[in-house]
Amino acid sequence: MEHSGEQHHPIRVYLVVWGLLFLLSVMSYLVDFFEVRPRELAWFLITAFALFKAGLIVSYFMHVRFERLSLVYAILLPPLLILALTAFVMAEGGYVFDVRALFFGR
């Protein structure tokens, strides 16, 4: 596998991952359908299911689990910067909301 650069895995691996992705999607849909409250719990569950699904897709469908470590680090580390961007703009969003409420009165 390592020499030819080909990926050989039993079909069962893909079917199990497929089934898990279905299950996790149904579960995150049900969280919304039954309106799980408090909302923080619903957000937490939906985010957790999404991250688990993303992990399955990247690890098994995209074979990252079986790639060389140099490539894995180059793929997985840079996107973490997006978390910093998101944190900054979320803080900014709250500030803009306050300013609008203050000056436009709603």
């Binding site: 961007l85 703009v89 979320m90 900014e92 969003g93 803009v96």
Partner: peptide, 10 residues
């Protein structure tokens, strides 16, 4: 998605 978060929060 970050832009969406900022738009929704503000």
């Amino acid at each position: 998605l970050s832009a969406y978060a900022a738009a929704r929060l503000s």
